[in-house]
């Protein structure tokens, strides 16, 4: 079952930008694209733990600030030559509020 948690206002995140949500298991990065789509993925780069929320957002991708791996925000998959994936989380925008599905987070911490 999903548990939607009201996280913040859409306007709290800049377009083509990200902010993080702290969880017991590390940070989840919440991205907002240029056309106002919102994604949530693990903030930690599988390469050398770079903070993905600090990367440059382009289209529905982000480039890791440390060594330029590019991740698809939709799938969490690394693009191009690089191999790796980050966890993705369900998220939606309702009436301008960002809602994150916390059940996965809880499940993750339980696991």
């Amino acid at each position: 079952m999903r548990t939607w948690i009201d996280i913040a206002d859409l306007s709290d995140i800049p377009k083509r930008g990200a902010r993080v949500v702290k969880t017991a298991l590390g940070c989840v990065a919440i991205f907002r694209t240029d056309d106002d789509r919102v994604y949530a993925i693990d903030d930690t780069c599988p390469h050398k733990q770079g903070p993905l929320s600090e990367g440059i957002v382009h289209g529905a991708s982000v480039t890791c600030p440390l060594h330029n791996w590019v991740f698809d925000l939709e799938t969490g998959m690394a693009q191009g030559e690089d191999v790796g994936q980050v966890a993705t989380f369900d998220i939606q925008v309702l009436n301008g509020r960002i809602m994150l599905d916390a059940s996965r987070l809880a499940a993750r911490s339980a696991a």
Partner: peptide, 16 residues
Amino acid sequence: RDKWSALADLTLEAAE
């Protein structure tokens, strides 16, 4: 407020 801090802290919630 807008930039440097986390958007939300769910450390407690997630742990529950």
